[in-house]
Computed example of a mutant assay.
Amino acid sequence: MALRQMPRGARRMTHLGCAAAVLAGVLGMAPPSRAVPDRDEGVLVVRPGESIQRAVDAARPGDTVVLLPGVYRESVRINKSHLMLRGTDGRTVLAPPTAQAAPACNAAGDGICLTGAPGGPLTDVHLRSLTVEGFRRNGIWASGTEGLTIHHVAARHNGQWGIGVEKSVHSALRDNLATENGDAGIFLANAAEEEAPGLDTRGTLVLENRLDGNRIGITARRVRNLLIAHNTVLGNCGGVFVVGDENRPAGGALTVRDNEVSGNNKFCPATKRLPFLQGIGVVLTGVEDTLVQHNLVRDNIGKSPQSGGVVLFRSFVKAANHRNLIRDNVVLRNAPADLVNDDPAGQGNVFVHNTCRTSRPPGLCQ
């Protein structure tokens, strides 16, 4: 069924009401084997057994693709702007396709991949209420986007990152769950596979996510101007990593506040990039002008080089930390210490008004 395209303003209706109206109107209109998705007033509805990719390819700017509850063995490529892909109450699951299924971005091992064109970013794409699990590489991978939002998505048991975003600005990652992924639950970078200066993300938000059982909860690598706040980071090998290097500008100029980072004591063996990880709360390494404030960091216990509550660590490429402020945090029962400054080359780093009991060197708990 093809209806005329709605005016752009009308299609910007409240998505919950839109999805509910569509579901009420189209259930039963076509059998599950229908190849072409239904379109009704700017919404395309996909049922288990139908192709998500076909619906995405058929969507017009401003459309919403609604996935009814069920398991979809498919990977999906999104390369058009102004689109929403949403599941139904989190009961929509994307899993790796069978060997016979035509790959979209599954050749790289990703569940959903979003890629901007060389001429400009992929703009105003929204992912909501989905589960993406079991993919060889990343649950969701985004590169070259602007205004990307990922909300209420579960990314679990993926080989590398649960949600990975590079070369992107104005992103909002909110109220997601990332568990048991091979590397970071949420990974943000200027560029994942190349050397580059720190990227100004222009206000990217990482808010109210839960990261549990990953190698690292959140990694912010060579990025600037973003907020990491109100996240719950538990049971990973490492909690929050803010990473820079010798490139200029360095990573940093960002805020980590009001997070709970506790009990990240899972053991992860060494890789080519990092030594073994265990008992790591919040680490700043090779970054500048970062504020770590009002966090609860407790019970992170380990013997890795970066273990401890809040740790300043000189990077493995010898880039020092400069002008970082760690204040007004509750940092307790971490080992080898609650506060650690293991960066003698760093300048202008300040620890003040933190509630803690142990530090290396002594005297940081004041």
Rank of each mutant, 00 (worst) to 15 (best):
P305Y: 09
L312E: 10
Q293N: 09
S307E: 09
V317I: 12
G279N: 04
Q278P: 08
A319F: 03
V283L: 07
N300H: 03
N321Y: 00
V287N: 12
L277R: 15
R323H: 07
N321T: 02
G279L: 05
I280T: 11
N295K: 00
I280L: 14
S304Y: 09
V317N: 14
L291Q: 08
Q293F: 03
G302F: 10
V292T: 02
N295D: 13
K303E: 08
S307P: 07
V283Q: 04
V292C: 09
R314Y: 08
V297R: 07
I280Q: 14
K318P: 06
P305Q: 12
L277M: 15
N321E: 01
G286Y: 11
N300A: 01
N300M: 03
R298E: 05
T290E: 04
L277E: 15
Q306K: 11
T290D: 02
S307K: 11
I280G: 10
S315E: 12
A320I: 03
F313R: 13
F316V: 12
L296P: 00
V282Q: 07
R314E: 11
G308D: 13
V310N: 04
G302A: 14
V297Y: 05
L291M: 12
S304K: 11
G281C: 09
V283F: 06
H322C: 13
G281A: 08
V310T: 05
Q306V: 05
G308W: 12
V310A: 06
V287T: 13
G281E: 06
L284H: 05
L291V: 02
I280M: 13
G281F: 08
N295H: 05
D299T: 06
K303G: 10
F316Y: 13
T290Y: 02
L296S: 00
V317G: 02
H294Q: 09
V283W: 04
K303D: 08
I301S: 04
Q278I: 08
V282L: 09
S315K: 06
R298N: 05
S315N: 13
R298H: 03
V297E: 03
L284W: 01
Q306H: 08
F313M: 10
K318Q: 15
V310R: 11
V311I: 15
I280D: 12
F316P: 01
D289Q: 08
V317H: 08
N321H: 00
R323C: 05
R323E: 05
G286M: 08
L296M: 00
H294S: 10
G281M: 07
N295Q: 08
E288N: 13
D299Q: 07
G286H: 04
S307H: 10
I301H: 12
R314I: 07
V317D: 15
Q306I: 09
G302M: 14
N295S: 01
V311S: 15
R298D: 04
Q293S: 10
N321I: 01
N295W: 01
R314C: 06
I301L: 07
A320C: 00
K318C: 07
V287L: 02
N300Y: 03
V287W: 11
G281Q: 09
G286E: 08
P305C: 13
E288I: 15
N295V: 00
